[in-house]
Amino acid sequence: MKAETKTQLISVGSVNMDPSLIHWLTIPTAGPGAGNVAFFFSSGGHRVRLAVKKESPLQAEMENGELVIRKDGVEIARGDIEEELIHCPEQAFITMCEKCVFDCKFCPVPKLEGKIKTMDEMLGMIGKANETGKMHAISITSGVEISPESEVDRAEELIRRLRETYSVPIGVSVYPTEDSTPRLKNAGADELKYNVETMDRPLHKKLCPDQDLEFILQSLEQGVEIFGRNKVCSNFIIGLGESDKSAKEGIEELVSIGVVPILRAAAKHPLREGELTVERPSAERLLMLNRFLREKLDEYGLRADIFKTMCLPCTGCDINPHSDLE
């Protein structure tokens, strides 16, 4: 599987297959893909996460111990179904709160009856993951149950307690508060992610009415000052109605302040039907924007392939411009 094939798979985002073939089926609980059954597919040093959907134009079946993916009867990729630890391979990726009071129009989480994990439950999950010997990092994310401040409180406590036991890298992704960045760093976090969602100002105001993009950008800039370069990233959804020009301007704005953007393909969800127009980006658009992103990262001296936690080392949902592109 080459980068072009991976972008083709991401642009579709799903396969039609027998779920019983998969031993590590999971249902994501955070972000636009929440609620979909998904698995990790690995081939030729590349990894992609695919949802299982009967209506997918891609067909997958096992042949001689490998998963073979075809479109219109033509093979496009073959490889392995990859074992997950928690949410992704080699990481204990914990969603503290699977609910959210923010009403971002592309995200199903506010519509789902997600759970809120207790501190003991999260510590227990990470302890079991560590016992496998396969845990190379811990990542923490969260919705917003009551307020961003309460989630930062919980993240800070969880990170402090984890640092008493574990020396692996810890990454954290929450909605920022006035003092969240120094608090999370002092607690023991190594990497930080505050999500802009979209850098198109009019779209952000429309689709994320409860969030303040300018405050998020200020917090990201502070994050680079406190955590350092190549330690701060941000999800940037592509396919919400932004133009290529807008996307490129947003990429350069983030990179210029030392932030590594993660270009996430927009996904339609039935719980958000009629609330927004989503056009999942084509493989060609994903490649074009990620090649532009790589140029800008190189120009500003940033790397996407040296992060240790969260989405950039996983690479399942996105193109990593340094590890996926030649």
Results as ranks from 00 to 15, higher is better:
Leu271Phe: 12
Glu253Arg: 15
Val259Trp: 08
Leu217Lys: 15
Cys314Leu: 05
Leu271Ala: 14
Pro321Gln: 07
Asp305Glu: 11
Asp298Asn: 15
Lys231Leu: 07
His269Glu: 04
Asp298Arg: 14
Leu254Thr: 08
Asn230Gly: 05
Glu279Met: 07
Met288Trp: 01
Leu293Asn: 09
Gly258Tyr: 03
Ile262His: 02
Ile262Tyr: 05
Leu213Phe: 02
Pro313Phe: 07
Ala304Trp: 01
Thr315Tyr: 04
Thr315Ser: 12
Gly239Thr: 02
Gln222Val: 03
Ile237Lys: 02
Thr277Ser: 14
Glu279Lys: 14
Glu253Gly: 03
Glu299Ser: 13
Ile216Tyr: 10
Arg291Phe: 05
Gln211Ile: 03
Glu221Ser: 15
Pro321Ile: 11
Gly258His: 06
Leu240Ala: 09
Gly228Tyr: 02
Arg272Pro: 02
Arg280Lys: 14
Cys317Val: 02
Ile306Lys: 11
Met310Gly: 00
Arg201Tyr: 11
Ser282Asp: 00
Tyr300Glu: 09
Gln211Trp: 00
Lys206Leu: 14
Cys311Pro: 00
Leu293Ile: 09
Glu275Asp: 10
Ile237Gln: 06
Met310Glu: 02
Leu289Tyr: 07
Glu275Ile: 04
Glu225His: 12
Leu276Pro: 03
Ala267Trp: 01
Asp244Tyr: 05
Arg280Pro: 02
Ile257Trp: 02
Pro261Cys: 13
Tyr300Arg: 06
Lys205Pro: 01
Ala265Met: 07
Thr309Gln: 04
Leu289Ala: 04
His204Trp: 09
Lys205Ile: 08
Arg294Lys: 15
Phe215Pro: 03
Phe215Thr: 05
Ile262Gly: 00
Asp212Pro: 02
Glu214Val: 08
Cys208Pro: 01
Asn320Ala: 10
Ile306Arg: 12
Pro209Met: 10
Glu252Leu: 10
Val255Phe: 09
His204Gln: 08
Gly239Cys: 04
Lys206Tyr: 14
Val224Leu: 11
Val260Lys: 11
Glu284Pro: 01
Leu312Lys: 01
Leu286Lys: 00
Glu242Tyr: 05
Asn320Thr: 09
Leu207Val: 14
Ile257Lys: 13
Pro209Gln: 13
Val259Asp: 09
Gly301Met: 06
Ala304His: 05
Pro209Phe: 10
Val260Ile: 14
Glu275Thr: 13
Ser219His: 06
Arg229Phe: 08
Glu225Gly: 07
Leu302Asp: 06
Leu240Ser: 04
Leu220Phe: 12
Ile237Arg: 07
Gly250Asp: 05
Pro321His: 10
Glu279Gly: 01
Val255Trp: 09
Arg303Lys: 14
Leu254Glu: 04
Val255Leu: 11
Asp298Glu: 15
Leu286Trp: 00
Glu249Gln: 14
Cys317Pro: 01
Glu284Cys: 01
Lys308Trp: 06
Pro270Gly: 13
Ile251Ala: 10
His269Gly: 06
Gln218Leu: 13
Val255Met: 12
Asp244Ile: 12
Leu289Asn: 07
Cys311Tyr: 08
Gln222Asp: 13
Ile257Thr: 11
Thr277Gly: 06
Val255Gly: 06
Glu273Asp: 13
Leu302Ala: 08
Glu252Gly: 02
